[in-house]
Write a protein that binds this DNA or RNA. Structure first.
Lengths: 165, 165
DNA sequence: GCAAGATAGTTTGGTGTCAAATTATCTTGC
DNA sequence: GCAAGATAATTTGACACCAAACTATCTTGC
C-alpha cells in the first residue's frame, strides 16, 4: 500500500500533515465547515471510485435514471440540480460510452428520453457499492447525530434552494 | 425588484418550483444532503455577492490574506485547501485587479509573497459583510443544532481530510 | 564544488459547472 | 391559419478546480 499512498502523497494539494488549522476567522462559520466537509468527503468518494476506474460524477445521473426507467434531459436536470446545458455534455459522454440510450419522443420532435442500457445499469451498481461503503463511513462518523445532521442540512437546502431572488 | 427577480427566474437550472423531491435512493444518504446543502448555500452567497459585483470565490483567499499580512502561494494553498496550480491563476487575477501585491523573496528566488493592497482589503471587507449576513442566516436555520452541526462536519472533514489513501 | 534530490511556482490538459444566446419545434390567441 | 411567445435541447464562453509535467532555484551529501 505504500504505492497507493504515494499517489495521494505527492499531489500538490493541501491536506498534508502539519496542516491547515482552520483559519480563526472561519472557525465559527457553518458555511466554511459545510464546504470543507462536503469537499473532503466527495473527494474520498471520487478516489474510491477512481481506483475502480469509475467516474464519480456519473453516479447521481445513473442513479436517478435507475429509478425512473426513462427521463428527458430536462427532468434529469431538475432532479439532479444541474443546469440543462450541463446535462447536454454529460449525456453525450454517457451515450458515447454506451451507458444510456436515447429515444426520440414521437409526440414532440424537440424532445427525447434517455434510459440506462445494461452497461449503464452495471456501472450504476458498481458505483452504488462504493457509495454505500462511503456512506457507511459517514454514518459511523455521524453516529447518533445522523438524524439531526440530515435534518439541519435539509433545512438549509430547503431555505436556500427554494427562494427566488 | 421584479427586474432582480427575473435575473434568477429565467435561468435554466433546477431549484424551480414544483420541484425535485429528493430521489428516494438518496433520501438517507448523508453525502447527498451534504452536497445539496453546501451547493445551495454557496449559491445564495454567490448571488448576494454577485449583486454587489463581487467575486465570491475570492472571499476565502482575501480573508486568509487579511489575517496574515503576507503569505506565499503555497501557504495560501494549504490554508485554503486549493491546489497550488489553482492559486496561480487566482493570484494572477487578483493581482491584475490590483487587490494583491507580490514581493519577491530576496532569500529565495523561486518564491514570493503576496499581501493585500488597500483595494484588496476593501474588497475583503465588502465580501465579509455579505458572508456575515449569509452566516447569520445559517445560524438561524441551524438554531440550537449549530454546535452539533459544526462538530459533526468537523469530524467528517478530519476523517476524510487527513487520511492518505 | 557539484550532482542528486527537494521545493516553489507555472503550464497544460481535462472535468464540471453555470449563464446567455441560438435553433428547432410546439402552443396559443386572435 | 398564422404570428408571437413558450419550451427542449444545444452551443459557446467563462470560471474554478485538480493532476501531471515542467522550469528554475535551492539544499545536501559526498
Amino acid at each position: 500500500m505504500a504505492a497507493e499512498s504515494s499517489i495521494r502523497r505527492d499531489t500538490q494539494a493541501a491536506s498534508e500533515e502539519g496542516e491547515a488549522l482552520v483559519p480563526a476567522m472561519f472557525q465559527n462559520l457553518i458555511g466554511y465547515h459545510l464546504r470543507v466537509a462536503q469537499e473532503t468527503s466527495f473527494q474520498a468518494f471520487a478516489r474510491a471510485a477512481g481506483k475502480a476506474d469509475l467516474k464519480p460524477g456519473w453516479y447521481a445521473l445513473l442513479t436517478a435514471l435507475a429509478e425512473r426507467e426513462s427521463m428527458t434531459p430536462s427532468e434529469l436536470s431538475r432532479i439532479c440540480g444541474r443546469d440543462r446545458s450541463t446535462l447536454t455534455s454529460s449525456l453525450k459522454a454517457l451515450s458515447h460510452r454506451g451507458l444510456i440510450a436515447r429515444r426520440r419522443n414521437p409526440d414532440d420532435q424537440r424532445s427525447y428520453s434517455v434510459k440506462l442500457t445494461e452497461d449503464g445499469r452495471k456501472m450504476q451498481e458498481r458505483l452504488h457499492e462504493i457509495a454505500v461503503v462511503q456512506n457507511a463511513r459517514l454514518d459511523e462518523i455521524a453516529g447518533e447525530d445522523k438524524a439531526v445532521l440530515i435534518d439541519v442540512l435539509g433545512r438549509i437546502a430547503a431555505t436556500f434552494g427554494t427562494q427566488d431572488f
